[in-house]
C-alpha cells in the first residue's frame, strides 16, 4: 500500500508538476494568474487527436502538436497580454481577461470536437511495463520521465544559458531589465514558446493516459497552480516539489479518508499554506507578499 501510494504520488505529481513548472515559467516574465495555461495543454492534446485521426505517424503528430500549442501560447502573450500590460493593466485585469479567453477557447473546442471524451490510444491496448516489483502503464512512466527531464532541462536552461539568465533578470525586475536594454518582448516570447511545448507534451500524455474533454483545462490549471503556489511561486524547484507535495497530500487523504474528498483536501491545503506560509515551502520568508 505504501509503495503504491508513493508510486502513484510520483505519477500524479509528475502530471501536476509539468503544469506547475509551465505556470511558474510563464509567471516569471508575465506575472499574473494566467487562466489559459490549461487551455494550451488541452489544445496540444486535441491537435494530436485530430492528426492521429488523419493517420499521420506519431513523431510528426507530436512535433506538429507541440508547435501548435507553443504558437497558441505565443499568440496569446503577444496578441493580448503584453499589449494590455503595456497599457497599464493590473494583474487582476489580466487574470479576468485570461478567464475570458479560456471561456472562449473551451467553447470553440466544444464546437469543433464535440463534448464527448476522447482518448488518443485505445485503453485496452495500453502497454504495461514491469519495473521489477510492480507493473506500471507505459504512458504513466512517460509522464514521470517527461516531468523529470523538463525539470532538469529548465534548471540547466535558466542557470547556464544566456537566454535563461535574461529570463531570470526579467523575473527579478522587468523595469530594470528594460533599462539595461534587455529586449523584454523577445524574452517573453521565448518563454511563451517554451511553456507551450511543456504544456503541449502534458496535453498529449494526458490524452493517452486519461483522455481529453473540452472542460479539462480548468482542472489541469487548478492543480498545477496550487502546486506552484504551495511550493513557493518564485522558484522552479518550488513548483516541482510543490506539485509533488500536493499529489502526496491528496493521496494520503484518499488512503485515510475517501476519494470524494480529494478536491476539498487540495484546496484546504492550498489555503492553509497561503495563510500560514505565503512564501511557500521552499523559500525563505520575504516581507512583501
Amino acid at each position: 500500500m505504501l509503495l503504491h501510494l508513493l508510486i502513484n504520488t510520483l505519477i500524479v505529481g509528475s502530471g501536476y508538476a509539468l503544469v506547475a513548472m509551465a505556470f511558474r515559467l510563464m509567471n516569471s516574465v508575465s506575472p499574473f494568474f494566467n487562466m489559459t495555461i490549461g487551455a494550451i495543454a488541452v489544445l496540444g492534446g486535441y491537435i494530436a487527436y485530430a492528426l492521429l485521426g488523419f493517420g499521420l505517424p506519431l513523431y510528426l503528430v507530436v512535433i506538429i502538436s507541440l508547435l501548435a500549442s507553443s504558437l497558441f501560447s505565443g499568440l496569446l502573450e503577444i496578441g493580448i497580454y503584453t499589449p494590455m500590460r503595456k497599457h497599464g493593466a493590473s494583474p487582476m485585469v489580466l487574470m479576468v481577461a485570461s478567464l475570458g479567453v479560456y471561456t472562449i477557447f473551451e467553447s470553440v473546442i466544444h464546437l469543433i470536437f464535440g463534448s464527448q471524451y476522447q482518448t488518443l490510444g485505445s485503453i485496452s491496448t495500453s502497454h504495461m511495463l514491469n519495473i521489477g516489483f510492480m507493473e506500471i502503464p507505459l504512458v504513466q512512466l512517460l509522464i514521470i520521465i517527461t516531468s523529470f527531464v523538463v525539470w532538469i532541462f529548465l534548471n540547466y536552461y535558466l542557470h547556464h544559458t544566456f537566454m535563461g539568465k535574461k529570463i531570470r533578470a526579467v523575473n527579478d525586475s522587468a523595469t530594470l531589465a528594460d533599462i539595461i536594454g534587455l529586449k523584454n518582448n523577445q524574452i517573453i516570447l521565448t518563454v511563451a514558446f517554451l511553456t507551450g511545448i511543456i504544456l503541449g507534451l502534458d496535453g498529449i500524455l494526458v490524452g493517452y493516459d486519461t483522455g481529453l474533454e473540452p472542460t479539462l483545462g480548468f482542472n489541469l490549471l487548478f492543480k498545477g497552480m496550487i502546486g506552484a503556489i504551495i511550493g513557493g511561486i518564485a522558484t522552479l524547484n518550488g513548483a516541482f516539489f510543490g506539485a509533488m507535495f500536493l499529489a502526496l497530500a491528496e493521496n494520503v487523504g484518499v488512503a485515510l479518508f475517501a476519494s470524494e474528498w480529494r478536491d476539498l483536501i487540495a484546496f484546504v491545503i492550498f489555503i492553509a499554506f497561503l495563510s500560514l506560509r505565503p512564501q511557500g515551502i521552499f523559500q525563505k520568508k520575504e516581507n512583501n507578499q
Binding site: 493590473s90 487582476m92 485585469v93 489580466l94 481577461a97 471561456t103 466544444h110
Partner: peptide
C-alpha cells in the same frame, strides 16, 4: 457555445477597453 463565447468575449473586451464596466466607477 455561442453564449459562452459571448461571455468570454465580453470579459476580454471589457478588460481591454473598459475595465470598470459600463456603469462602473472603479477600475481594478
Amino acid at each position: 457555445q455561442l453564449q459562452q463565447i459571448i461571455y468570454g468575449a465580453l470579459l476580454v473586451l471589457m478588460m481591454i477597453f473598459k475595465p470598470q464596466g459600463f456603469f462602473g466607477k472603479f477600475r481594478m
